[in-house]
């Protein structure tokens, strides 16, 4: 099985850690992520309007280029955009027709590629049990709050990742690396997202709520898969001391491949 890997724009710049530790860990677990040639930025947000074609074409191209394997995403935003695009290609005939008319692939693409988030690869290909066995430095005693945010789970109809209201994929991951998950009610609420460019006070309010909730439930740290969440939680929620990490960094640490 070929695991095509779509890093996305932020993982090449501000979120290099998410990318670097992700690749190293997967390699240590025996899976090679092959970076897709000529990938282009997904645009960060899926344009919901049915008549928006051009804004989704970079995702369509990445999907069509991955037909011989699985397309693995790591950034929550890329994951969200590409999975929603794939869902539209499979379920919205008019959109698929227009995208295919423009793209002129040798064989028309209609949503056949399987898209998996990195966490889904851990869960469904590696298996959390096997991950736990591969862990060299278990993060014993660490109380970790998983932060899903909005992009990883919703809309569940298209993303099909986990129960959108009571997810457990990150908690299972936390257990697998030897730490203890901390449950808190705001783990799937929005951090304020791209509103940071418009009005940082919104991001501050939303991220502050998330940080408060995780802190009072006893978390030592928060993990996320989203560069924008990490930015908002660390930068726009001042007065909070809990560190926020990319989950791949803790994974690399647990697997003993962090340098």
């Amino acid at each position: 099985m070929v695991y095509h890997y779509y890093p996305g724009c932020t993982l090449k710049t501000k979120a290099k850690d998410l990318d670097r530790y992700g690749r190293k860990s997967m390699e240590a677990l025996g899976i090679t992520l092959t970076e897709l040639e000529n990938w282009q930025c997904c645009g960060g947000a899926f344009t919901m309007a049915k008549d928006e074609i051009a804004t989704k074409l970079s995702s369509v191209r990445a999907l069509a280029d991955s037909r011989d394997g699985v397309l693995v995403t790591l950034c929550s935003a890329c994951h969200n955009v590409i999975k929603q695009t794939n869902y539209a290609m499979a379920n919205d005939a008019e959109f698929a027709m227009k995208a295919n008319n423009y793209s002129k692939f040798d064989v028309p693409y209609n949503g056949e590629t399987k898209v998996m988030h990195y966490l889904e690869v851990l869960r469904d290909v590696v298996g959390f049990d096997n991950l736990a066995k591969a862990v060299k430095n278990p993060l014993k005693g660490k109380k970790i709050a998983a932060y899903y945010g909005c992009l990883l789970l919703r809309p569940s109809k298209a993303l099909q990742m986990d129960n959108p209201e009571n997810p457990k994929i990150l908690e299972d991951f936390i257990r697998a690396i030897g730490a203890e998950p901390v449950l808190y009610p705001y783990r799937n609420e929005c951090c304020g997202g791209y509103m940071a460019t418009e009005d940082q006070s919104v991001a501050a309010k939303k991220s502050g709520q998330v940080m408060d909730s995780a802190a009072e439930m006893g978390a030592d740290m928060i993990i996320t898969a989203c560069p924008l969440c990490l930015y908002n939680l660390t930068k726009n929620a001042p007065g909070h001391q809990i560190p926020v990490y990319y989950f791949t960094e803790l994974l690399a640490e647990a697997l003993g491949v962090k340098d």
């Binding site: 501000k14 791209y194 560069p227 924008l228």
Partner: peptide, 21 residues
């Protein structure tokens, strides 16, 4: 200007805002 105001702003925020707005 946005980047200057906050050099930590991730690309993701910019491309998303740009796509939305």
């Amino acid at each position: 200007d946005l980047i200057e105001a906050d050099p930590d702003l991730p690309q993701q925020a910019l491309v998303t805002a740009f796509r939305k707005y």
